[in-house]
C-alpha cells in the first residue's frame, strides 16, 4: 500500500511524465494557451491513461511477455517484440471505443471531452506510460496507480502552464523569446519546481 502511494505521488510530481520524461509535449504545447481546453485535455488524458495502462498490462503479461503464453501450451513463446505495435493499436482502439461510448451515453461529457480524444491517440505520454510500465516491471495494481498518477501529473502540468500563460500576457517578454521560447523556459522552471518534491518522503 505504501508502495502504491509512493508510486502515485512520484508519478504526479518528481517523475512527472511531461516535466521529467518529456512525453506528451506536442499536445501540451499546442493546447496550453487556454485554461478551459487545457483542463479538458488533462481530464481526457487521465481518463485514457487509467484505461489503457491496465489493459496493456493484461495484454503484455498474458500474451506477449516471455512465457506468457504458457496457458495456451506455448511456454517458450516470446512475443515481446510485438509490444510496441500492439500497444499503439490498443490505444487507438480504446480511444475510439471510449469516444463512441461517451457519445452514446453522456452528451455533456462528450461535448467537453470528445474533441480531445482523437488528439490523444498520438500523445506520446499514453504510449510512454505503457512502455514504462513494462520497463519498470509493475504489478497490475501498480500499473493502475501509475496510469492514473501519470495522467494526473500531465493534467497538473498542462493546467499550471495554461494559468501561467494567462498571467504572462501582461509580462514584457523580450521579442525573440516570445511565444515558443518563453513557454519552454517556463516549462523548465516548472520542471525545477516539481523536482523539489523529491525531498518528500512517505
Amino acid at each position: 500500500m505504501e508502495n502504491l502511494i509512493s508510486i502515485f505521488v512520484n508519478s504526479v510530481f518528481v517523475g512527472n511524465i511531461l516535466l521529467a520524461y518529456f512525453l506528451g509535449m506536442c499536445s501540451y504545447l499546442s493546447v496550453s494557451q487556454n485554461l478551459k481546453t487545457s483542463a479538458g485535455l488533462g481530464l481526457a488524458v487521465i481518463f485514457v491513461l487509467a484505461i489503457t495502462t491496465p489493459v496493456n498490462w493484461i495484454i503484455y503479461h498474458w500474451l506477449l511477455a516471455p512465457g506468457a503464453l504458457a496457458w495456451a501450451g506455448l511456454p517458450d513463446m516470446d512475443l515481446s517484440y510485438l509490444k510496441l505495435i500492439l500497444f499503439i493499436a490498443v490505444i487507438a482502439g480504446i480511444v475510439q471505443i471510449v469516444e463512441m461510448v461517451i457519445d452514446r451515453y453522456s452528451q455533456a461529457l462528450y461535448n467537453s471531452l470528445g474533441v480531445f480524444l482523437p488528439l490523444i491517440t498520438v500523445n506520446c505520454a499514453i504510449l510512454g506510460a505503457s512502455l514504462f510500465m513494462v520497463e519498470r516491471r509493475y504489478s497490475f495494481s501498480q500499473a493502475v496507480v501509475y496510469g492514473v498518477g501519470s495522467g494526473a501529473g500531465w493534467a497538473l502540468a498542462i493546467i499550471s502552464m495554461a494559468t501561467i500563460m494567462q498571467k504572462l500576457r501582461y509580462a514584457d517578454v523580450p521579442k525573440g523569446l516570445q511565444g515558443f521560447g518563453i513557454r519552454m523556459i517556463v516549462t523548465g522552471l516548472m520542471a525545477m519546481a516539481f523536482m523539489l518534491f523529491s525531498g518528500i518522503t512517505l
Binding site: 521560447g181 519552454m184 522552471l189
Partner: peptide, 22 residues
Amino acid sequence: GLMLLAPGAFIMIGLFTWLENT
C-alpha cells in the same frame, strides 16, 4: 548539475529559439 536534469533541456531549447529568432 542543472543541465543533467530535465529542466536543463527545456531551458536549452528556449534559449536556442531565442538565439534563432534574434
